[in-house]
Structure formats: C-alpha cells, structure tokens
Design a binder for these strands. Structure first.
Length: 474
DNA sequence: TGGCAT
DNA sequence: CGTAT
DNA sequence: GCCA
C-alpha cells in the first residue's frame, strides 16, 4: 500500500517507478540511439541552456528527446510485439499512455522504430537541413522569443562535430560554422589563425591534437587503474586521517558498469571534509592529490592540457554556501548561474594511461561534507535525465534537490511551511517533518541514496528500482 | 498558461 | 570562457 | 511538446 494509492500518478512519478537498464530486453537500442542523435542535434543547433549566459530558456526539443529516450529505456513491453498485435495506430495509442509521450512523440517513436529514421527531423538534420515541425513547416530558427532568432537550425552535423571538441562549446561551434564557414574538425585544424582567435590557448591546441583519443571509450583495464591509482594516492597523502579516504566510480562507470569516453571518480571520507584549515588558510585535499598525480605523470598539468579545478575557498567561513546561493537565486533572477554547479571540490582534466600512454578525460569530485555523500553520489551518478526527473519530483514536493541536501523551497501560496514524509511504510506510523522556508532536511533522515529516493516517494518504496545504479540509465 | 534541474 | 551529472 |  503506497501513499499515492487512489490518486493518479503524475508523469514524473510514473517515470521514477520504472527501471532504466543500460540494455533493455526489447531490442530498442537503435531507437534509443536515434533519439539521442536528435537530442544532440537540438543541443548543438540551439545551444544548451548553460552554454548561453544570456538566455536561461529551456531547450524544450532536446528535453523532449531526452525524456522520450528515457521512456523507451523504461518500457515494460515490446514495441515489436505490439506492432504485430495491434498495428501502428494501436501502438501509438499505447505509447501515448506512457508519461511524456503525446501524439507527436509517440508517432515519431513508431516511425523511427519501423524505418530507422524520422523523415521530418532526423533525416533532415543528418543532411544538414533544418527540421520540420509537426505542422510540416521548416524550423529555420531556434525559437527563443526573448532574443533575436540568431541561431539557424541548419548544419547540424558540423555543429555536433565541432562542439564535441573539448574547449569548444555549442555556441562557439555555431559561430565557427556561420561566421567562419568551418564545417569539420579537419577544416578547423587547417586554419591555425582561426584556432588562435578562439582564445583557447594551449588547452584548445592540445584537445584538437588529441581529439580522437579523447573520444575513445576508456578500456576497462585503464578505468580500474585510474580508480586504484587515485585511491592509493589519496590514502598516502599527508592530510588528516588520509587512510579514511575512499574513491569510487560514479557517472557512466556506475550506471553502465563501464566507462564511456571519461571516467568519473567520487572521493569521500566518513569524518573529514574536502578541505582543512592550516595556518595559511584552507588546504584542499584535491590540490594535494593533483600535485602528486601530476608529478607522477598520470594527470596532465595545466600548462600542457585542459585542466580545470574548482575548489570552494569559503568552506571554512561559510560551511553551507549553497543555502545562501539558493536564497540569492530565489530573491533575484541574477545569481542564478551560481546554482549550475554544486559546491563539491572538483577537477576536470586529462589522464595519461601508464599502460598505453593514451589520454582520457577524467573528472574527480571530492564530497565536501561527510553527510552529503548520498546526495553527491546520486547527483554524480546521474544520468542527467534522471537527475532532472528526480529534481522535478522534488519541486512537486516543495523541495530543492541538489548535490548536497534537500532544502524546503517555502515558495508555495499561503504558507512557508513544507511537510516532508520521510517514512510511510506499512506497519509503521508515518513520519512527517515540517520545514521552514529554505530549511534543509536534517541529514539523519537521508543517509543513503535509498533514503533520498524514499523521501522523493513520500516515504514509500515506490521508486526502489532506482536504488540499483544499473537501473539509472534514463 | 507557465514551467521545464541544479 | 568552458566545464558536470 | 507535454503536463499540471
């Protein structure tokens, strides 16, 4: 008996009740790939929200494709069998009963499943043409009403290719295509004066030079070696209770059980924060770790390759900076971009395999406070789409869910109080916590990813399939 | 009809 | 300026 | 484009 019994589930709830295995049992991988391509074309042509500081509009088309792909991954029935038994129309109707699929998406899914492509979108994108909307009109421009329509939907393949280069954002790729007539990485490599104009310096030169290597999947042997080396190195550092540091795979390495083109590693400690105070001010475990890894030749130094480190210097003055940030974001529309990142210390850089000498992207995240571990794990395990769904669910419950904690939004009509059902399982009295505006949910109620999922399910186990990270490939 | 993750 | 799930 |  769950708390939502009797009520219709929202689309987000229906999604979170599903399991999203990497490879499903119903032969949908080609369909999933096509939906992913469509999402990438939309992101490359329109720009992702964060790629454009001027505009915080949602790329709704990309969002539609991401959700459609997640629904397909989570399907508990066979499209092929349904098409045989009920035909095209019957299958479209059945798809429309799934969350987030209306007529447009359901029809598109069936077309792609049957023909391998979609004539009005994917086939046109792949030819470099602008797609057609559901009425058959050419979608020549990204529709962002609040700004001039300066982004043509043409040249998708060129934009996808150029923006796949580390240090080249979607916006830069769009400019390269339309202002400099660059249509491929090969063409960009032939124009050093244009590369120089991009102001990416040696980092861009390096990522252009090693682009192919950086795109290759990281072999399992190397991913294991990266994790092992990071773990052993951090445990040997001269920092407080060094032996208590842990390193684990997050990201695709955790949801798929194998690395993609990068390896994401989360570092955490049961008692220690990500930094400690010395007489000279805060010292970051990540900095000391990077110093050793660079010296050992495993991590490429910042003078040589892409190297991005973000540490929260104010942690010891303001232990919970995100509370202030959430407050700022609520009060003014500015300060919003500060929310796009969490406040765990992190490193985005390049690893050199000791075995093969090949280069691979690596992300290191150091959990900032011990009790935030389940939130850091959940967020950095993802996927991106699942994070968005879980955070949408949190919004429905009046909560903010980030990579640190739950915080009551307190922005509902009438009251600033938020009631959180932390436990409502059979045979027990339900446990309800009342929070004031911007008050975090105490960590004692959320000590694991399972606890977070239970809070999202109003104290029930309705979302328990997602406890297993291999079911999180939404 | 506003909102779409942080 | 570009970067993450 | 889909949902509440």
């Amino acid at each position: 008996m769950d708390a939502t019994a009797g009520k219709e589930l929202t689309a987000v709830e229906q999604m979170l009740c599903k399991a999203f295995p990497d490879v499903g049992p119903f032969g949908t991988s080609a369909l999933e790939k096509a939906l992913r391509k469509l999402e990438k074309f939309e992101l490359a042509c329109q720009g992702d929200d964060w790629a454009d500081p001027e505009c915080k509009a949602t790329n709704t088309e990309a969002l539609q494709y991401a959700r459609a792909r997640a629904v397909v991954k989570g399907l508990s029935w066979s499209l092929r069998e349904s098409l045989q038994a009920r035909g095209r129309t019957g299958t479209i109707e059945r798809l429309m009963e799934e969350p987030f699929l209306g007529k447009s998406n359901a029809t598109k899914i069936v077309e792609i499943f049957q023909t391998g492509t979609c004539q009005r979108t994917l086939a046109r994108f792949e030819r470099g043409e602008a797609p057609l909307d559901s009425e058959g009109n050419v979608r020549m421009w990204a529709h962002r009403h609040e700004h001039k329509a300066t982004r043509p939907m043409t040249d998708g393949p060129a934009k996808v290719e150029l923006s796949s280069v580390l240090c080249i954002s979607a916006m830069t790729a769009i400019k390269l295509v339309h202002e400099r007539n660059i249509r491929s990485i090969a063409q960009l490599r032939d124009r050093p004066e244009i590369v120089r104009e991009l102001h990416g310096g040696h980092r861009l030169d390096h990522s252009l030079r090693f682009h192919e290597q950086l795109q290759e999947p990281v072999p399992a042997e190397d991913a294991c070696e990266m994790l092992k080396t990071v773990r052993e190195t951090v445990r040997a550092l001269r920092v407080p209770r060094a032996a208590g540091w842990h390193a684990e795979l997050v990201g695709g390495g955790r949801t798929r059980g194998r690395a993609g083109h990068d390896v994401d590693i989360l570092l955490w400690h049961k008692e220690e924060m990500a930094s400690f105070l010395s007489s000279q001010g805060p010292v970051f475990v990540l900095d000391i770790l990077l110093g050793v890894l660079v010296e050992q030749g495993r991590v490429l130094p910042k003078g040589e390759a892409y190297f991005s480190r973000k540490c929260v210097a104010s942690r010891h003055d303001d232990p919970r900076p995100y509370l202030r940030q959430i407050h700022m974001a609520q009060e003014s529309s500015k300060g919003f971009e500060n929310l796009q990142y969490d406040h765990h210390d992190k490193f985005f850089g390049i690893w050199r395999s000791a075995r093969t000498g090949k280069l691979h992207r690596i992300d290191l995240v150091v959990c900032s406070h011990p009790e935030e571990l389940p939130f850091a794990r959940l967020a950095w395990t993802g996927t991106r789409t699942l994070n968005r769904l879980m955070r949408l669910r949190a919004i429905d419950l009046g909560l903010y869910l980030g990579a640190h904690c739950f915080v009551a939004r307190g922005d509902r009509e009438g009251t600033t109080e938020t009631k959180v059902v932390v436990d409502a399982q059979a045979g027990r009295p339900p446990e309800v916590i009342t929070l004031g505006k911007l008050e975090p949910l105490p960590f004692k109620y959320v000590q694991s990813e399972e606890d977070i999922l239970r809070v999202l399910a109003c104290g029930t186990n309705a979302f328990a399939k997602l406890v297993d990270p291999t079911n999180r490939n939404a």
